[in-house]
Design a protein around this nucleic acid. Structure first.
Lengths: 242, 242
DNA sequence: CACCATTTGTTCGTATGTATT
DNA sequence: TAATACATACGAACAAATGGT
């Protein structure tokens, strides 16, 4: 990599107290200190910890609410709604379009990631990939839908992670999160033949990445996508019949 | 397309006055009523037009400021900083990584878009592509850097637009915007041989899309990417020499 | 340079509706 | 049902910064 060449930045100098608090709370959320779905400390607690006035805390909280990161419930408390601003914003944007468009972009990232992963994967990546594949096969036997979906997403995440491009990984993860509900509702009606074909392709894909064979990895990713496309079309015909 | 299958939505009912004002102002910005870089009406004016109190207006403005859409300057006014929330958020995220990562994802979208464009382009797309190519060649002769860059971006935008995937197009455009400054600073030092090779590839790419030849389009996009990679490496070596 | 109008920033107070206890 | 706490919205006054005369 040819380093030291970053995007032009303009902000930096602007820092009110509220802005700092926002940055700090956003940091806590994005670092995972404040877990999604849980309740954050009550306002008096935040006032003590951050050392600012209650008004400032309130203003920062409201800003984060409007950004989609937090959610306030009267008489209850404020909860974490999303782990990243990009995720929340992207989610709002993706909701305006059909799932097909999101899946198409997601696959596009996946295919390039497969190619790059074959070129760049580390030894540590290999270990993670093998582990994911093992869990994936086990979850398959248990036939628990949610567990299987989680294992599937973890495997694909690991492949994209092995490409070592953080922007690509972020976009991919957020898109996976966005389509998860849709996919989950789709799985129960699947053709078993296709599912097994999918599992074979997962093995083929991982092996290609481990073998550092970029072309094979890309081909496997493409075949994987074609199977998913077929599943979607089957589901569509089922829907129109019902 | 198999329609009527959208992402699960949760929000919907939450509507305070501030939220409504935020939505309204965001709409004005995204529709282009309030142009980027210009000043929006002063608070008293907004109070009259929207029929809410100044505090409510201020809260909405602050929310939009924290989202990156607006920028306030005391004693001067409030200015439009970005046209879309996704653009602003994505920009902040991309700033944290090197340009290389962004360019890599952008190329990935571009390649898939080229393939899809060849499959889906309409007759109207063809007209637009030919026009962009013509303007592109003319800008080339004038040797004005900014004009040439604009024509180049317009051409690539048209190709991605011809793929008819709005999510892909949005992401691509915002990434182009994010790297524009970096590319602009890179152009003056370019090798003329490479530039002409790039122009030839632009023609090859557009013709492939018009001919509905998906494989050729993807190949041309990949070759285009390789040339850009070469340019980046040349620039990197020049930097290290200086 | 001083002055002034404009515009945003800050901090009060008050009224009203709503959720929790 | 009554009491309490909180969120929301409005209004008003003053402070601070900017741009032009």
């Amino acid at each position: 990599m040819f380093g030291g060449f970053y995007l032009a930045l303009k902000e930096a100098i602007k820092s009110t107290l509220v802005t700092q608090v926002i940055a700090q709370m956003k940091g806590l959320i994005e670092e995972g200190e404040w877990v999604v779905g849980t309740r954050i400390p009550p306002e008096p607690e935040l006032v003590k910890q951050l050392g600012v006035s209650r008004n400032t805390v309130r203003e920062a909280v409201q800003a984060l609410v409007h950004m989609g990161l937090l959610e306030t419930r009267q008489g209850d408390g404020t909860y974490v709604r999303s782990q990243s601003e990009l995720g929340a914003t992207l989610m709002r944007r993706l909701r305006r379009s059909g799932v097909e468009e999101t899946l198409e972009v997601r696959h596009c990232l996946e295919r390039e990631a497969a190619r790059l992963a074959a070129l760049r994967r580390s030894d540590e990546d290999v270990q993670i990939l093998r582990l994911c594949l093992k869990l994936h096969d086990e979850a398959m036997r248990c036939r628990n839908i949610e567990d299987f979906l989680s294992a599937d997403l973890a495997l694909h995440h690991a492949i994209v992670a092995a490409a070592h491009n953080s922007v690509m990984l972020d976009l991919y993860d957020h898109m996976s999160e966005a389509v998860r509900a849709s996919i989950s509702s789709m799985i129960p009606k699947l053709d078993h033949v296709l599912v097994h074909r999918l599992l074979d392709l997962h093995h083929e894909l991982v092996e290609a990445v481990i073998a550092k064979n970029a072309e094979a990895a890309e081909v496997a990713a493409r075949k994987h996508d074609e199977v998913v496309q077929t599943m979607l079309q089957e589901r569509a015909t089922q829907e129109s019949e019902a």
